[in-house]
């Protein structure tokens, strides 16, 4: 092994701590909106799904370093295509089987 690679300097892991605090806050916020408030069902679902997507992006950018690498565009395209197919499968299935019948 050679020791020439860039080494991180010692320091407080702010990014990780902020990611954790945001994740926990969003989780409890979603719980409170779903259980504590009694908003109309479709409003509640729209809010908690938005919070989940926001929290997923926190994981992706703050913990998974999706924009790092020598050419991150490759992994970004892959993961965006995965998100696109997964979203289409879920939304399409619900549309056809739960609402259109």
């Amino acid at each position: 092994m050679n020791g020439t690679q860039k080494q991180l300097k010692a320091g407080f892991p702010w990014k990780q701590v902020i990611g954790l605090i945001l994740s926990l806050t969003l989780t409890f916020l979603a719980l409170w909106i779903a259980v504590g408030l009694s908003l109309p069902v479709h409003v509640t679902i729209a809010i908690i799904v938005s919070l989940a997507i926001f929290q997923a992006f926190i994981q992706l950018f703050m913990f998974m370093h999706v924009t790092e690498g020598t050419e991150p565009v490759h992994q970004l395209m892959g993961i965006l295509f995965g998100i696109y197919v997964a979203f289409t499968v879920v939304a399409g299935t619900l549309w056809i089987l739960a609402y259109a019948l």
Partner: peptide, 19 residues
């Protein structure tokens, strides 16, 4: 990079189960 592609495929697997 290949592992990211694998994770994208896993995302699709879980997408079908969520649906």
């Amino acid at each position: 990079v290949g592992f990211w592609i694998f994770l994208a495929a896993e995302l699709v697997l879980f997408g079908t189960l969520f649906g």
